[in-house]
Amino acid sequence: MPYLVAGLVFVGLLSVFDLLLILAVVRRLREHAPPGAAGPPVPFTPPGTALPEFTATGLDGTAVTRAYFTEPTIVGLLSTTCASCRERLPEFADRIRGLDARRVLAVVEGDRADAEPFVAALSPLATVVVEPPNGPVSTAFGRPAYPSFYVVGADAVVTASTLAPSGLPVPAAT
């Protein structure tokens, strides 16, 4: 019986030592991980960022460039492969309902056929651009996490950014 108790105590102490060793190794690996290897990507373009030059075309033929932003504009970046984008689509549509469609830009990344639910919901409310992955508009915004929502000022500078449409301020008309 004393050998059994001694054996159990030994196995318990060995397990605690093994756990402490594993935690030390994980901490050391995190310290030596290359920059950018750990953590989520930058979720969105921060306020104060000036958009670079880009060129895209809306489904209605509207040219979308830096010059498109002649007054504060709401921009929504969505992806057809993003489940959260589909969930936030009705919230985004509700947020922009009643605004001038020229003051709202909806960018849908993905195949045109897959984008149809987004196009149907947003076309009456916004200028809609459907682009391939890493298209010109999403690249101008630094390929953010999806969905991302912005207010872009008349000077093509981001004035507000958020991951939820409810966090968007409604820009005042100029």
Rank of each mutant, 00 (worst) to 15 (best):
L21F: 15
L21H: 12
L21T: 08
L21E: 10
I22D: 11
L23Q: 14
L23P: 08
L23E: 14
A24G: 15
A24H: 09
V25R: 13
V25P: 03
V25G: 13
V26D: 01
R27K: 04
R27M: 01
R28E: 13
R28C: 10
R28L: 12
R28F: 13
R28D: 11
R30W: 11
R30L: 01
E31D: 15
E31K: 15
E31R: 15
E31N: 13
E31M: 10
E31Q: 15
H32W: 08
H32L: 14
A33S: 13
A33V: 02
A33F: 05
A33I: 04
A33W: 10
P34F: 09
P35G: 12
P35L: 08
G36F: 03
G36H: 06
G36M: 02
A37Q: 11
A38E: 14
A38Q: 12
A38M: 15
A38N: 04
G39Y: 14
G39S: 13
G39E: 14
G39L: 00
G39P: 07
P40I: 13
P40D: 11
P41L: 06
P41G: 11
V42N: 11
V42D: 14
P43C: 04
P43F: 01
P43M: 06
F44E: 00
T45E: 03
T45A: 03
T45Q: 07
P47G: 07
P47D: 10
P47V: 06
G48D: 13
T49P: 06
T49Q: 06
T49F: 02
T49S: 05
A50G: 10
A50K: 12
L51A: 06
L51R: 07
L51M: 09
L51C: 01
L51D: 06
P52M: 05
P52T: 03
P52L: 01
F54V: 03
F54K: 13
F54G: 08
T55W: 04
T57N: 08
G58M: 08
G58K: 03
L59V: 01
L59W: 04
D60P: 01
D60C: 08
G61I: 01
G61P: 04
T62N: 01
T62V: 05
A63V: 04
A63T: 08
A63I: 02
V64G: 07
V64K: 05
V64Y: 09
V64R: 05
T65M: 04
T65G: 07
T65C: 02
T65S: 08
R66G: 03
R66S: 00
R66N: 09
R66M: 03
A67T: 10
Y68R: 00
F69Q: 14
T70G: 10
T70K: 05
E71Y: 09
E71F: 00
E71W: 02
E71K: 10
P72F: 06
T73Q: 02
T73F: 00
T73P: 05
I74S: 05
I74N: 08
V75K: 13
G76M: 01
G76Q: 10
L77S: 09
L77Q: 00
L77W: 02
L77P: 00
L78Y: 14
L78W: 06
